[in-house]
């Protein structure tokens, strides 16, 4: 089985990852970078799924699922970092806002 279509899709996803990487490196504001990292993670999940299909191994889908979960954790940590300036705030106290959000760098 020669998966040329799978290969082209995987290559296109790699290209999309490269575009996200450019935004991550150049991104003027922090929020550009957060968005770029999050989107990059999504692209990686897609890339791994396509790769698993291309090679014909089901294991890759497990990794893709793990990525989806981890990506979520990292994004929450980053946003919590910006809003509370601490990773020590419990979920039950999340409604209270400790200090002002600082935009930009």
């Amino acid at each position: 089985m020669i998966g040329y279509l799978d290969f082209v899709i995987a290559l296109a996803l790699a290209g999309a990852m490269a575009v996200m990487l450019t935004r991550l490196c150049l991104g003027p504001s922090l929020y550009d970078r957060i968005l770029a990292v999050n989107s990059f993670g999504t692209k990686t999940v897609l890339f791994l799924s396509v790769f698993a299909i291309m090679v014909g191994r089901a294991d890759g889908v497990d990794i893709a699922l793990l990525y989806a979960l981890i990506n979520f954790i990292a994004t929450i940590a980053i946003l919590k970092f910006f809003r509370y300036r601490s990773l020590d705030v419990a979920l039950s106290q999340m409604t209270k806002r400790i200090d002002q959000v600082e935009g930009g760098q």
């Binding site: 991550l24 970078r33 990292v37 993670g41 990686t44 791994l48 790769f51 890759g60 990525y67 980053i78």
Partner: peptide, 25 residues
């Protein structure tokens, strides 16, 4: 430094994808 933290996370994602493609699941 914040951008560097973001980039190291991306580096890990990329290297893990590379490990998958090398069959080191």
């Amino acid at each position: 430094l914040f951008a560097i933290v973001m980039l190291t996370g991306t580096y890990s994602l990329l290297s893990a994808a590379w490990f998958v493609s090398l069959d080191a699941v």
